[in-house]
Nucleic acid binder design. Structure first.
Length: 676
DNA sequence: CAGTGAGCGAGCTTCCGCTTGACTT
């Protein structure tokens, strides 16, 4: 009997199925060794002789749970003939393999790597075992140590200089910075007036009476955009009585390829946009689907697809939609991130036979599971469907010195659109300009047109939008910051620390978040730089390739960092967190204003003249619902462990509480409050 | 399921990246 060790129990089950009897497959449940949680856990020594050179000695330990798990595996290992380490083929996976081998003690280990969990890949890997790659292990160690140094040195500095309990880190601090800087852009934004002038026209020919709208785009051969109403009026006055002729007709064929199959980040983004889910919720549902064996692993940055899956989807498409919808050669997608170590596949359904209608009955999934599954299923199948083809039309219309334009689009073959439509609610509501909505009739150059109608609309340029779960994750991924397993937890952390608030699903920095960010940007610009992770990654690659050693890499980072820490620790003054204004006067002293402050337990209201006036009150988050027990306001609160629940504003006089949002029961004759 | 809190005396907090449970109301 041979023993095989992987990270997760689900991967273990799959592997066991392929390997058959003769193999026992066990899960390590992630990392088995790490730096201790309660202290730095790194001995730092100054190298004698050379200035600014440090040596680091990390103290890797295991938690009780990890030790217990490894004890169990050790027992099986003693009986096993061979032990295979089959963790992921990347930095973290290699480190897990190494730590497992360390903890299992004396034994011969076979390191096997595969890039997809398919019979062939596994057979091939098992037939060609190697040894643990210590360069990769060292790269992981360097990554871990740098993250620990940044986090556990900066956080205590914040406790001293801002407030207790705060935190900073390579990933979370950049996430906060993005939110803060976006807010500043929004504040600095000055909306500019502009006018959109559109004219409805129709061909003079009796046989072509379909009307269409054109938009004013040019004046005297130059791009035209009316900035003030006077200009717009001048144009509209002319256009109401102008003579219109078709100046140009352009037709172009286009083809459109489907989007790549899901990675963790694109799944989180799409689920946020289409289903309105938080990244956390998406991952919970995906985990359930993964454990039931319906989808491949849900924490991945790879868009690779297994050959077996490609074959079966091609068969399925030929059978269900006809050969014109299938591809002769599978479409491959390049993985965007250069950090991707191709450890996994894209997120896809494990089976593509049947269609989503049958799945509802067959799998017995919950409503949410089904919705996410359907999204994953469609995205995957669509990515192997024929291109959409169509014709785009651009019609230029001339009216004196003015030029107007109509754009249209006709789809001649729907291809993958047949399956994966834009069902975005925004698009459905018409908030997003959906191409192809407006049809332009067949027209010939030089043709005369009749004026039917004119619309002149005043508009204002809009500030950049606040980040959502989707756009913040997208931004982090584009900067190469964070990993699939940390996107969702990072968003939770920056909210838990009260650095940002999420209202209406959009992130806004709190006064605390702004203060901490400014402190870090001023004093540690290199660490919270968007490029910091990229620089570190280059070094880590160097270690993995054997061109660099981990000690000098960490030392080069730490030298200047430590100097800065000392400097800032000595000289920086304590940061005052700006209180947020409510616009209300203090009810006690009437001279001060009510402001929102952030304490240990979250927000509270206080007088702006503190300590001169000590008025304070709870900050309540009204939900708009009415308490079913006493008729008071239902407010959103948190337990000690920061879990949200709904309670009554009259607590402790009324003890109503609920985990779920209570349904509103309106007493007779009362006005229904707005729901949030 | 929760009533406090903000610059001080004591002892506490904190990182990123792998992974899954278990107190559920």
């Amino acid at each position: 009997m041979d023993l095989v060790i992987v990270e997760s129990p689900t991967k273990a089950r799959t592997l066991a199925r392929f390997l058959g009897s003769g193999y026992e497959v066990e899960a390590s449940y992630g990392h088995v060794r790490d730096l201790p949680e309660r202290k730095m856990g790194i001995k730092i020594e100054r190298e004698s002789g050379r200035a600014g050179e440090y040596k680091f000695e990390p103290e890797f330990t295991s938690t009780k749970k990890q030790t217990e798990r490894m004890e169990e595996i050790k027992k099986m290992g003693n009986k096993a003939e061979k032990i295979y380490l089959a963790t992921d083929p990347d930095r973290e996976g290699e480190a897990i393999a190494f730590h497992v081998s360390q903890m299992l003690g004396k034994h011969k280990f076979e390191r096997v790597v595969f890039h997809e969990i398919t019979e062939n890949a596994i057979r091939e890997a098992m037939g060609n075992p190697g040894v643990v790659n210590m360069r990769l292990v060292e790269a992981q160690q360097a990554r871990r140590i740098v993250d620990r140094l940044v986090g556990y040195k900066l956080s205590p500095l914040l406790w001293r200089k801002v407030r207790r309990g705060l935190s900073a880190g390579r990933v979370q601090s950049v996430a906060v910075r993005l939110v803060v800087e976006r807010e500043r852009e929004i504040e600095a934004f000055k909306p500019e007036e502009y006018w959109v002038i559109r004219v409805e026209l129709q061909s003079e020919q009796e046989t072509n009476k379909q009307s269409f709208w054109v938009t004013l785009t040019e004046k005297g051969g130059e791009k035209y955009k009316a900035a003030i109403s006077q200009e717009a009026e001048e144009a509209t006055n002319y256009l109401r009585t102008a003579k219109y002729t078709v100046g140009s007709v352009e037709e172009k064929e286009f083809k459109r390829t489907p989007p790549a199959p899901f990675t963790t980040s694109t799944l989180q983004q799409t689920a946020a946009n289409r289903l309105g889910w938080s990244a956390k919720r998406t991952m919970q549902i995906a985990q359930a689907l993964y454990e039931q064996g319906h989808i491949t692993y849900h924490r991945t940055d790879s868009t690779n697809l297994a050959m077996e899956a490609l074959r079966s989807v091609a068969n399925f498409l030929t059978k269900e939609f006809g050969p014109e919808y299938a591809l002769k050669i599978p479409r491959m997608y390049k993985t965007k991130s250069k950090l991707s170590q191709e450890a996994h596949e894209a997120i896809r359904p494990t089976k593509v036979n049947g269609d989503s209608r049958f799945i509802i009955q067959d799998f017995g999934l919950s409503r949410d599971e089904l919705r996410l599954y359907e999204l994953i299923w469609k995205r995957f199948v669509a990515c192997q469907m024929a291109e959409v083809s169509g014709v785009s039309m651009k019609v230029g219309v001339i009216a004196g010195e003015y030029g107007l334009e109509a754009k249209g689009e006709t789809i001649t073959f729907d291809g993958w659109l047949r399956l994966y439509q834009s069902t975005n609610t925004k698009e459905q509501n018409g908030e997003v300009d959906a191409l192809g909505e407006e049809k332009v009739p067949e027209l010939a150059e030089g043709e005369r047109l009749d004026f039917l109608d004119l619309k002149s609309e005043q508009k204002f340029t809009l500030p950049p939008p606040r980040y959502t779960d989707a756009s913040l994750i997208k931004a982090l991924e584009e900067e190469g910051i964070g990993r699939p397993s940390t996107y969702a937890p990072t968003l939770t952390t920056i909210q838990d620390r009260q650095y940002v608030d999420k209202s209406d699903k959009k992130f806004q920095p709190t006064a605390l978040g702004i203060a901490v960010n400014d402190f870090l940007v001023t004093n540690f610009p290199d660490i919270v730089d968007y490029e910091f992770t990229a620089k570190i990654e280059d070094d880590l690659d160097g270690i993995a390739e054997g061109n660099k050693h981990w000690q000098p890499v960490v030392s080069d980072f730490y030298g200047p960092f430590e100097k800065k820490l000392d400097e800032v620790g000595e000289t920086a003054v304590r940061v005052q967190v700006q209180a947020e204004e409510t616009g209300e006067a203090c009810p006690k002293c009437s001279e001060g204003r009510q402001v929102i402050r952030i304490g240990r337990f979250g927000k509270f209201l206080a007088c702006s003249l503190y300590p001169g006036c000590d008025w304070k009150a709870n900050f309540v988050n009204k939900t708009g619902q009415i308490c079913p027990k006493c008729g008071g306001d239902v407010v959103l609160k948190r337990t000690r462990s920061r879990k949200s629940f709904f309670g009554c504003s009259n607590y402790p006089n009324c003890d109503f509480a609920s985990w779920t949002r209570p349904s509103y029961k309106a007493p007779e004759g009362e006005v229904k409050p707005e729901t949030v």
